[in-house]
């Protein structure tokens, strides 16, 4: 199958003072349609340089770049700019949204630059944002400026912008680097699900969780590829066995961990405020932390219990799953 993006024997030498620094020393890499490739390696291994060469943001010292089978490493800057607008989407760690524009206009901008009329560009942008932000209930915030959005939301907008012209490949440089765990996971899911069957995705990352989400992981060290491993697709197989038994009970909720609803918890409540390790049953354990609950913690747990009561009554009105 023809690669959507390919680099052959890519090399890059930087001049630093009087010495040449070999950032890349002959790297072969290809991204097939629908494939997600993660490039990993320590800082300075050349992974960002590789992404820049493949996206035409920088020129290689030697080697070839192909976009959808067409050799492009020798084309003019203007032609690279056209390619980036139409065939290559970029997602960066720092989002790089334009602060003066709304989310919608940020997303519409590449479509406008590619020659689409304002109404068409905004319609396409609105549609994409609805799709990408809809599950967060943010589809009505398309007029917000980047500063009014959280970092996770900004990265979603940036992904929408990268996709607006339906590129053949998306290049992402540490797309989760500025995000908390939950946003990172949501953004990764979005990137991988949005690629569909044709679009390739190349992610440069040092986040093992992002790498694990890719189909293939390429490791660079000192400007060379030192590892290339294909991960097996995992469906929902682990769950299929237990889902056949589903209906027996939904997963226990974290809120339930804090509630004192059964005899054992009632027992430990007797020495609440005391040392958890001073009971006779604990002799010999020794050295435990004394955990005195602060007033604030008690208030928090009271609030939690109130929420639980509320939720439990809601459960009771519903399925009555706990009667089993």
């Amino acid at each position: 199958m023809q690669a959507v993006l390919e680099g052959r024997a890519l090399a890059k030498t930087y001049r630093s003072g009087d010495v040449d620094v070999l950032a890349l020393r002959g790297v072969d890499i290809r991204v097939a349609p629908g494939e997600c490739v993660a490039v990993v390696g320590r800082s300075g291994c050349g992974k960002s340089t590789l992404l820049h060469l493949l996206g035409g943001l920088d020129r290689s010292t030697a080697g070839e770049v192909y976009v959808e089978g067409r050799r492009v490493d020798g084309v003019s800057d203007a032609e690279w700019a056209r390619l980036r607008r139409r065939r290559i989407g970029f997602v960066f760690q720092a989002f790089h949204l334009l602060d003066a524009m709304s989310a919608l206009d940020n997303v519409a901008l590449p479509a406008r630059l590619a020659g689409q009329d304002r109404a068409g560009a905004r319609a396409r942008a609105g549609e994409l944002l609805g799709e990408l932000l809809g599950e967060l209930g943010l589809e009505n915030r398309v007029d917000a400026t980047p500063a009014q959005l959280s970092e996770g939301e900004q990265q979603r907008v940036a992904i929408a912008r990268a996709l607006v012209n339906r590129p053949a490949v998306v290049l992402a440089d540490e797309p989760t680097g500025n995000l908390d765990t939950d946003s990172a996971r949501a953004v990764l899911e979005l990137l991988t699900t949005q690629r569909g069957e044709d679009r390739g995705l190349l992610i440069v990352t040092h986040d093992p969780r992002v790498a694990a989400g890719a189909d293939r992981v390429v490791r660079l060290r000192d400007g060379l590829v030192v590892g290339d491993t294909t991960l097996a697709a995992t469906g929902t197989r682990q769950r299929s066995s237990s889902s056949s038994r589903a209906g027996d009970g939904s997963p226990v909720r974290i809120a339930d961990l804090g509630r004192a609803a059964h005899p054992l918890a009632a027992d430990t409540a007797d020495d609440r405020g005391g040392d958890l390790c001073d009971g006779d049953v604990d002799r010999g354990v020794g050295g435990g932390w004394t955990r005195r609950r602060s007033v604030a913690a008690n208030v928090r747990s009271d609030q939690r219990r109130a929420r639980d009561r509320h939720r439990r009554s809601a459960d009771a009105l519903g399925a009555g799953e706990r009667s089993a």
Partner: peptide
């Protein structure tokens, strides 16, 4: 990868 491709129970579950 296998772990993250589990269907999600919801982040508020044990």
């Amino acid at each position: 990868r296998d772990l993250d491709s589990h269907p999600r129970d919801g982040d508020d579950t044990v």
